[in-house]
Protein backbone atom coordinates (compact mmCIF):
# COMPACT_ATOMS: atom_id res chain seq x y z
CA UNK A 1 0.00 0.00 0.00
CA UNK A 2 2.75 2.42 0.82
CA UNK A 3 6.19 1.74 -0.50
CA UNK A 4 8.40 2.65 2.44
CA UNK A 5 12.10 2.23 1.95
CA UNK A 6 14.68 2.42 4.70
CA UNK A 7 17.93 4.26 4.03
CA UNK A 8 20.86 5.71 5.89
CA UNK A 9 21.27 9.46 6.39
CA UNK A 10 24.63 10.61 5.02
CA UNK A 11 24.17 14.41 5.23
CA UNK A 12 21.67 16.91 6.59
CA UNK A 13 21.05 20.47 5.41
CA UNK A 14 18.21 22.09 7.34
CA UNK A 15 15.06 20.02 6.75
CA UNK A 16 16.65 18.17 3.85
CA UNK A 17 18.62 14.96 4.31
CA UNK A 18 20.70 13.09 1.79
CA UNK A 19 19.84 9.45 2.29
CA UNK A 20 21.68 6.46 0.92
CA UNK A 21 19.41 3.69 -0.26
CA UNK A 22 21.84 0.85 -0.71
CA UNK A 23 24.07 2.60 -3.18
CA UNK A 24 21.69 5.25 -4.55
CA UNK A 25 21.30 8.60 -2.83
CA UNK A 26 18.27 10.80 -2.79
CA UNK A 27 17.09 13.94 -1.01
CA UNK A 28 14.50 13.23 1.66
CA UNK A 29 12.58 15.91 3.56
CA UNK A 30 12.48 15.81 7.34
CA UNK A 31 9.35 17.95 7.84
CA UNK A 32 7.17 15.22 9.33
CA UNK A 33 9.63 12.89 11.04
CA UNK A 34 8.88 12.98 14.75
CA UNK A 35 12.33 12.58 16.22
CA UNK A 36 15.58 14.46 15.65
CA UNK A 37 17.52 12.82 12.85
CA UNK A 38 21.31 12.72 12.73
CA UNK A 39 23.84 11.61 10.15
CA UNK A 40 24.18 7.85 10.42
CA UNK A 41 20.54 7.26 11.40
CA UNK A 42 18.26 5.05 9.40
CA UNK A 43 15.02 6.66 8.22
CA UNK A 44 11.97 5.29 6.45
CA UNK A 45 11.22 7.20 3.24
CA UNK A 46 7.80 7.47 1.65
CA UNK A 47 7.23 9.75 -1.39
CA UNK A 48 10.21 11.90 -0.52
CA UNK A 49 9.48 12.35 3.17
CA UNK A 50 11.07 10.61 6.13
CA UNK A 51 8.15 9.27 8.15
CA UNK A 52 10.17 7.50 10.82
CA UNK A 53 13.64 7.46 12.32
CA UNK A 54 14.44 3.77 12.76
CA UNK A 55 16.35 3.40 16.00
CA UNK A 56 19.00 0.72 15.72
CA UNK A 57 17.97 -0.67 19.07
CA UNK A 58 14.53 -1.36 17.68
CA UNK A 59 15.93 -3.26 14.73
CA UNK A 60 17.31 -5.53 17.40
CA UNK A 61 13.98 -5.51 19.16
CA UNK A 62 12.14 -6.66 16.05
CA UNK A 63 14.67 -9.44 15.55
CA UNK A 64 14.36 -10.45 19.20
CA UNK A 65 10.59 -10.64 18.76
CA UNK A 66 11.07 -13.03 15.85
CA UNK A 67 13.57 -15.13 17.77
CA UNK A 68 11.08 -15.34 20.62
CA UNK A 69 8.39 -16.53 18.24
CA UNK A 70 10.68 -19.27 17.00
CA UNK A 71 11.98 -20.08 20.48
CA UNK A 72 8.45 -20.79 21.75
CA UNK A 73 8.19 -23.20 18.94
CA UNK A 74 11.51 -24.84 19.62
CA UNK A 75 10.27 -26.47 22.76
CA UNK A 76 7.53 -28.16 20.80
CA UNK A 77 9.54 -29.36 17.86
CA UNK A 78 12.97 -30.83 17.49
CA UNK A 79 13.07 -30.14 13.74
CA UNK A 80 13.12 -26.45 14.48
CA UNK A 81 16.23 -27.05 16.53
CA UNK A 82 18.04 -28.21 13.41
CA UNK A 83 17.00 -25.12 11.50
CA UNK A 84 18.04 -22.96 14.42
CA UNK A 85 21.46 -24.54 14.40
CA UNK A 86 21.62 -23.63 10.73
CA UNK A 87 20.72 -20.04 11.56
CA UNK A 88 23.43 -19.89 14.19
CA UNK A 89 25.87 -21.23 11.61
CA UNK A 90 25.09 -18.77 8.83
CA UNK A 91 25.19 -15.47 10.67
CA UNK A 92 23.17 -14.26 7.72
CA UNK A 93 23.99 -10.61 8.17
CA UNK A 94 26.86 -9.38 10.29
CA UNK A 95 25.80 -7.17 13.13
CA UNK A 96 28.24 -4.47 12.11
CA UNK A 97 25.60 -1.92 11.17
CA UNK A 98 23.13 -2.50 13.90
Amino acid sequence: MCLGVPGKVVAIDGNRATVDFWGVRRQVLLDVVDEPVAVGDYVLNHVGYAIRRIPESEIGETLALFEELLAQDDAADLMAGDVRAEIAGTGAAPDGES
Partner: peptide, 13 residues
Protein backbone atom coordinates in the same frame (compact mmCIF):
# COMPACT_ATOMS: atom_id res chain seq x y z
CA UNK B 1 22.34 -7.06 -10.45
CA UNK B 2 24.54 -4.09 -9.59
CA UNK B 3 23.92 -2.86 -6.03
CA UNK B 4 22.96 0.61 -7.26
CA UNK B 5 20.39 -0.87 -9.63
CA UNK B 6 19.02 -3.00 -6.82
CA UNK B 7 18.87 0.05 -4.54
CA UNK B 8 17.03 2.10 -7.16
CA UNK B 9 14.71 -0.79 -7.88
CA UNK B 10 13.76 -1.12 -4.20
CA UNK B 11 13.28 2.62 -3.99
CA UNK B 12 11.10 2.88 -7.10
CA UNK B 13 9.27 -0.42 -6.70
Amino acid sequence: VRPEVRGASDLLG
